[in-house]
Design a protein around this nucleic acid. Structure first.
Lengths: 205, 205
DNA sequence: TCTTATTCAGCACAGTTGTACTGTAATAGA
DNA sequence: TCTATTACAGTACAACTGTGCTGAATAAGA
């Protein structure tokens, strides 16, 4: 046998190449040839790990979810006061630096494509549930109430559950605007808007 | 000379064909051939009105802005109580029926592409300013203060100006979620969320 | 050392793409 | 009636696309 490559790690690296190409040329530029060039392999080599281009893009989208989830769990394991933890959690979803900007760009591109590409529709649904869960966690930590246990569990207080829904919409708007109108919404402004929104979440009990 | 066709009207009809194709197959499906098929002309016939595919897509995006603007001015000329006018104005930006859903899908697709297609970058900027203006108008009409005169003019009350910015983010989030997660956010829920947000805009003066 | 499964590179191929080009039918103005 | 111009259809072509295939280099296990 040859070098005996770590299959999962190799696929992850190729997914990062997809991110780089999408970041540079948009999702329409994410062709097998350009991704292969970006990763420094041939089309045949790429095809050894992904049997179709759709599978490649799908995996790249799933890797975005994985990367975000990893950072979120790290924040949840860290010892932080509730309000600050709420802010940090939601900031992980926003394009506040180069890394998260790429993730958001890839994610939004795949989100749009999921309308006509069925293979992406499933990851879109799970991402919505996951993001809603993060919003509920943020509301719970901001207000000092018990966080929901599993994904899909609503907050006990109906008012706070409603506010989590509103927060979800707001965070998505912040994501879209910060990604599409980068010049109008620099990271500082994004953080300030998010902070104000979290204050409003906890305002009158 | 032949039939002596109305050039502008013909271009508008072809732009609608672009909408239909993007709605059905996404922006990647908006090739000259498929648009020509949709419009019932040949590629040569299409090229007689648009000398490039990018120009075709650009015009289709501009036509979205035109359609929305036309409806907005109609609402502004109608005689309605302030709060209801505010709601109606913002509802024109949201995918609440089939027509507006197509517009939003086309717009979001072009917005994403504008990151890598310079010809779309300009229309993106003007759209942001226009949408911000609509949000300021909505806040002004909801709160009974003087609406801004020209696009770009801020609200006199800094608090209300800040709330217009927040409303802008929220409306974009609502647009994105309603378009991408149609099953989770039916039109009724979208309207309710918007109404609650407008109530919050006018809540404590 | 030999075998054999793994990791890739490279090419082939059919289909699609944007754009340029030619030809043709049609009609307004002379 | 003649002519020049407009509105298309159709074709051509080079570039690019995803995918299938072949084959070579590699190194772990016999």
């Amino acid at each position: 046998m040859p070098k005996l490559v770590d299959h999962a790690q190799r696929r992850a690296a190729l997914a990062r190449a997809v991110w780089a190409v999408i970041d540079r040329e948009g999702i329409e530029g994410a062709t097998v040839r350009r991704v292969a060039d970006e990763a420094g392999v041939s089309v045949g080599g790429l095809r050894h790990y992904f049997d179709s281009q759709r599978g490649l893009v799908l995996f790249a989208a799933q890797e975005v979810a994985s990367a975000v989830t990893a950072r979120l769990t790290a924040h949840l394991e860290a010892d932080l006061p509730g309000p600050e933890r709420a802010q940090r959690l939601l900031e992980e979803l926003l394009p506040l630096d180069a890394e998260r900007r790429v993730e958001v760009d890839v994610w939004l591109a795949c989100l749009m494509r999921s309308r006509v590409d069925g293979t992406l529709a499933e990851v879109r649904r799970t991402a919505w549930s996951g993001e809603r869960h993060v919003c509920r966690l943020a509301v719970a930590h901001r207000c000092g109430v018990a966080p929901p246990g599993a994904i899909g569990d609503e907050l006990q207080d109906p008012l706070l559950e409603r506010r989590a829904g509103r927060l979800h919409v707001f965070v998505d708007g912040l994501t879209l605007q910060a990604a599409a109108f980068r010049d109008r919404l620099p990271p500082r402004a994004v953080r300030a808007l998010l902070e104000a929104e979290l204050d409003a979440v906890a305002d009158p009990v």
